[in-house]
């Protein structure tokens, strides 16, 4: 358990550094990937039971390093990671499809709700916020999640996932 905690913490630190150093430099138009969100949600699915504190800490760091309202990202990350963890537990059938769907839905939930909280006060059209930011960022984060999932599974799971294969989740092993 300690080993897993340590790995989760190190992964969190790496996610913060990636977000600060790399993410702004790989933006496509105005869509910037959010490594913190992707990492937290993947951990919530792969290592259920450790995501609340991780979501809070990473969310708080995200807000403190950024310019949005402090408290918004931890709130959304905690809610999204709790939902992702529960839904993944309930529907995981060992394929990559379910985690990716759960990840995509969780990410879009975070992005859309954050859009309302962060820029709602600025009088921005919600449709603009969705089209110009939330949707592109969600797609970008889903691609990032797709790339990270096998790697994270190797770190935190037992077996490498294969498309369409039956693969027991780590909580079932």
């Amino acid at each position: 358990m300690f080993s897993n905690n340590l790995m989760v913490a190190i992964g969190g630190l790496a996610a913060v550094l990636l977000q600060v150093l790399v993410a702004p430099n790989i933006a496509i138009f105005h869509a910037i990937p959010n490594v913190l969100v992707v990492y937290t949600l993947l951990i919530a699915m792969l290592v259920p039971g450790q995501h609340f504190v991780l979501a809070f800490v990473l969310g708080m760091l995200s807000d403190l390093l950024g310019y949005g309202p402090v408290g918004a990202m931890p709130l959304l990350l905690i809610v999204a990671s709790a939902l992702a963890s529960r839904v993944h537990m309930a529907f995981d059938n060992g394929t990559v499809f379910i985690p990716l769907v759960v990840l995509a839905v969780s990410i879009i939930l975070v992005e859309v709700l954050y859009a309302f909280i962060a820029v709602g006060a600025a009088g921005v059209d919600p449709m603009d916020a969705f089209i110009y930011r939330a949707l592109p960022c969600t797609l970008y984060n889903c691609v990032l999640g797709l790339a990270l999932y096998p790697f994270m599974w190797r770190l935190f799971g037992k077996r490498e996932p294969q498309l369409g294969s039956v693969m027991p989740g780590p909580h079932l092993q």
């Binding site: 259920p48 039971g49 450790q50 995501h51 609340f52 504190v53 979501a55 809070f56 969310g59 708080m60 309202p69 402090v70 408290g71 918004a72 931890p74 709130l75 905690i78 809610v79 709790a82 963890s85 529960r86 909280i117 909580h171």
Partner: peptide
Amino acid sequence: LNFKQGSPARSYTVLVLLLAISIACM
């Protein structure tokens, strides 16, 4: 903080506490 393996009451307490802190900060 595992729902399954840890104490559910403790997990819910932490969840509620962290949510409360987040909302208070906002």
